[in-house]
Simulated scan of single mutants.
Amino acid sequence: MPTPALSKEEQIRERILCAAQQLFQQHGLHKVTMDDIARALGRGKSSLYYYYKSKEEIFEAMLDREIREVLAEVEQAVALAPTVEEKLYTFCMTRLQKQRQKAALNALVAGEALRSLDLVHHIRQCYRQQQADLLRQIFAGAEGSLAACACPHSVEALTVLILAGLRGLGEELVFSDSLALVEPAIRMLCHTLAAAPLLPAPSQPSS
């Protein structure tokens, strides 16, 4: 489907986010001012406040946009994969590919998290939740031993395992800068999960 045309206000917001992202990645959030963003756009600072109340709000909107773009690409790629194992593999590989492509942005977010954890924490939590929701959709279509939709306990355990594994593989990717080195680990992880037995439901404490 063709992407719907942006309204004039949406176009202005997009230009603000693009200009701000370049400045943030060059100088860091704490060094960039609303004046800097306005100058980069060739606009008066007062006009920015019509769209965003602060540079922090711009920063959050920028991250939200980037997350939505990444998740949309991951979801599209997953939809084309034929089996659950391939869907899990595609989810992991596409997710890491996008992480690698956005290395400068990831470094910015990591730096700002050290200065202001609250600013980044909410967005990271939302990102994790949306990834988990997509994984649950994949599991919902599983068959055989990975029919985890029949056991919510297994769904949550596998979701935690995959997201934690991706964080670790993402760190390896930062050090090695080579998807070819982490790809076999991703393939092994997905193959293992595709053959994973269901977990028993947690026992209820006796009254």
Score class of each variant (00 low, 15 high):
residue 84 V to W: 05
residue 44 G to R: 07
residue 54 S to K: 05
residue 11 Q to G: 13
residue 117 L to F: 12
residue 36 D to N: 07
residue 66 E to I: 11
residue 3 T to S: 08
residue 35 D to R: 09
residue 166 L to V: 05
residue 161 L to M: 06
residue 28 G to D: 00
residue 8 K to N: 13
residue 67 I to T: 11
residue 112 E to N: 03
residue 67 I to Q: 11
residue 202 P to A: 15
residue 122 H to G: 13
residue 12 I to L: 14
residue 39 R to L: 14
residue 191 H to S: 13
residue 175 F to S: 15
residue 189 L to D: 09
residue 157 A to I: 13
residue 52 Y to Q: 00
residue 63 L to F: 15
residue 61 A to Q: 08
residue 60 E to T: 10
residue 147 A to N: 08
residue 2 P to H: 00
residue 200 P to L: 02
residue 177 D to Y: 04
residue 13 R to L: 10
residue 170 G to I: 06
residue 57 E to G: 09
residue 89 Y to S: 00
residue 125 Q to N: 08
residue 111 G to V: 11
residue 107 A to G: 04
residue 122 H to F: 05
residue 156 E to K: 00
residue 96 L to D: 14
residue 57 E to Y: 06
residue 169 L to C: 05
residue 168 G to V: 10
residue 3 T to M: 05
residue 83 T to W: 08
residue 55 K to S: 02
residue 177 D to S: 09
residue 64 D to T: 15
residue 188 M to E: 14
residue 98 K to D: 11
residue 73 E to N: 07
residue 155 V to W: 04
residue 17 L to N: 06
residue 76 Q to S: 01
residue 21 Q to V: 03
residue 199 L to M: 05
residue 72 A to P: 10
residue 77 A to L: 01
residue 142 A to E: 03
residue 89 Y to M: 01
residue 21 Q to S: 10
residue 6 L to N: 09
residue 147 A to P: 07
residue 38 A to I: 12
residue 14 E to T: 12
residue 64 D to Q: 15
residue 28 G to R: 01
residue 117 L to M: 12
residue 2 P to D: 01
residue 47 S to I: 06
residue 48 L to W: 00
residue 196 A to E: 02
residue 60 E to Q: 08
residue 46 S to A: 11
residue 18 C to N: 14
residue 80 L to Y: 05
residue 9 E to L: 06
residue 97 Q to R: 10
residue 64 D to V: 12
residue 157 A to P: 09
residue 158 L to V: 11
residue 123 I to E: 12
residue 33 T to A: 02
residue 97 Q to Y: 10
residue 119 L to E: 06
residue 184 P to V: 08
residue 120 V to Y: 03
residue 159 T to I: 04
residue 39 R to E: 15
residue 184 P to R: 04
residue 131 Q to N: 11
residue 16 I to Y: 00
residue 159 T to M: 01
residue 99 Q to T: 14
residue 5 A to F: 09
residue 131 Q to L: 05
residue 134 L to C: 06
residue 180 A to I: 05
residue 114 L to T: 14
residue 173 L to P: 14
residue 183 E to I: 03
residue 61 A to K: 09
residue 95 R to Y: 09
residue 65 R to C: 11
residue 114 L to D: 07
residue 4 P to Q: 02
residue 85 E to H: 02
residue 46 S to R: 12
residue 194 A to V: 01
residue 138 I to D: 07
residue 112 E to A: 02
residue 107 A to W: 15
residue 26 Q to R: 03
residue 178 S to W: 00
residue 126 C to K: 02
residue 52 Y to I: 00
residue 196 A to T: 07
residue 107 A to E: 13
residue 161 L to P: 10
residue 23 L to H: 00
residue 55 K to N: 01
residue 38 A to V: 14
residue 172 E to A: 11
residue 86 E to Y: 04
residue 76 Q to K: 09
